[in-house]
Amino acid sequence: MRLNFTVNGRATAVDDVWEGESLLYVLRERAGLPGAKNACEQGECGSCTVYLDGSPVCACLVAAGQAEGREVRTVEGLGGPGRLDPLQEAFVECGAVQCGFCTPGLLVQAHDLLERVTHPSDAEIREALAGNLCRCTGYEKILDAVRLAAERKAAAR
């Protein structure tokens, strides 16, 4: 089937989509957006997190056809052209990225938190990121990065 949706602000059409395929597969294999990662395909790891109509979801659990006419925003769409989002900069500066496999999902999920909450507590950050697994960092530097980005975003307001 053909799928029409908006990705990172661009109207996109992809063909030959299998009806049981996930949105994650469409993004990575058909739309040239390999940012969202495929690790578990069962909602456990969060590395495939993308915005769907403004809410972060596991793209591996969205049937491609459910995205018809909807708006998707991936990690590729967080910054502007040639420019990182302040959250992405904070991840780089804090050393929150090791192998990087979990990073795209964490960025989208933490981005949503910072859109909703200006000064998140540590408990709120942990709660928001409870569905994103990282095998490398031990999470401390990720928490540092989210705190730093929150401070900078608040200061810029």
């Binding site: 909602g43 972060p56 979801v57 596991c58 928001a128």
Partner: peptide, 9 residues
Amino acid sequence: VGSPQIRNR
């Protein structure tokens, strides 16, 4: 239930 992503869907 699950995680925020799971609760959103």
